[in-house]
């Protein structure tokens, strides 16, 4: 195993650092940076299509699908090699879901050109049939490696992973779902079978890295960031530590508002980014991957700026 050097830079004031990061990009990467992939992500939007009202106690004037659409298309214009992902719990939380069953959520995500999503526990809230019924409104696909839908209507509609090729860079993305028993009524998820996410992630990362030869491996997870009171429960932090070859874990479920991505060490001691942007579309996560010739990376190391 090649030992890479990772230079991790933490910033105290994010806004100040954005400028600094921009400057450093100008100053030393023009000659070496070859390719650039941008990953944008949301999680637990929970049918929050409209922004919060001006007098909302916690998040006044924040969020809103129409604003998110503006941001996404601006970033896509800057970098066409952008993927837009969602880590589940698209449904439930406002009357839009009670009235239209997720129709508008999927239609708007399609208009924003979401590339991929995974399935959260609340996406079963109208039953697995309710989810299936909305699939024609989604122009994007769903991935889940540890839910087996074989004996349900969702069979063949959810793949374990999907591979995108952007500017010649092969990006493998697999999905993970949370344990449904005790969380979702069995009558809702029916014959959906849940498998251990860590075990399935270990296999998925091997398939994507070794068999499919992906340059980037991303996990779209709805298993939750971390459970302090129940540290053994599968979570994104455990997932990061117990696997290898995953570059980025995009999480959901616990509505964790991470001010910046967490950097964990995987089983090989390599850095893995874990990110989650709370809930309700208040934030969009943005991860930029810059590529270079392998020999330069070996020589110069890899830097992570959060």
């Amino acid at each position: 195993m090649m030992k890479r050097r990772d230079f991790i830079q933490h910033s105290l004031a994010t806004s100040a650092f954005v400028t600094l990061g921009g400057l450093s990009l100008q100053s030393f990467t023009v000659s070496s940076a070859k390719k650039h992939i941008t990953i944008l992500h949301t999680n637990d939007v929970h049918s929050h299509i409209d922004p919060f009202g001006a007098n909302h106690p916690r998040n006044p004037n924040q969020g809103g699908a129409a604003r998110r659409a503006t941001l996404v298309s601006k970033i896509r214009k800057e970098n066409p090699n952008t993927l837009l992902l969602d880590a589940g719990d698209i449904f439930q939380g406002t009357p839009y879901f009670n009235y239209y069953g997720g129709e508008l959520e999927f239609k708007l995500m399609s208009m924003m050109k979401y590339d991929l999503a995974t399935i959260g526990n609340h996406d079963f809230d109208n039953g697995i049939d309710g989810l299936y019924k909305q699939l024609p409104n989604a122009n994007f696909e769903f991935v889940s490696a540890n839910y087996d839908f074989k004996n349900t209507v969702m069979d063949t509609h959810v793949k374990p992973y999907k591979i995108f090729v952007k500017d010649g860079i092969k990006i493998g993305i697999f999905g993970l779902g949370v344990k449904l028993e005790g969380l979702v009524d069995k009558r809702m998820y029916k014959e959906t079978v849940y498998h251990d996410p860590i075990e399935f992630a270990q296999d998925m990362s091997r398939v994507l890295k070794e068999e499919e030869k992906c340059d980037l491996v991303i996990c779209l997870s709805h298993i939750g960031y971390n459970y302090k009171k129940n540290p053994e429960r599968p979570s994104d932090l455990i997932l990061a530590r117990k696997t290898k070859n995953i570059d980025l874990i995009i999480g959901g479920h616990t509505h964790t508002f991470l001010p910046k991505p967490t950097i964990e060490k995987n089983i090989d001691g390599e850095s893995v980014l874990v990110n989650q942007v709370g809930a309700y579309g208040i934030y969009v996560g943005r991860i930029d991957f810059y590529f270079d010739d392998e020999k330069n990376v070996i020589a110069n190391g890899k830097s992570i700026i959060v």
């Binding site: 860079i169 208040i282 930029d288």
Partner: peptide
């Protein structure tokens, strides 16, 4: 190609 640099942040809507 290999990853030489990663930048991560969140954007407030």
């Amino acid at each position: 190609q290999d990853v030489s640099r990663i930048e991560g942040k969140r954007i407030n809507i």
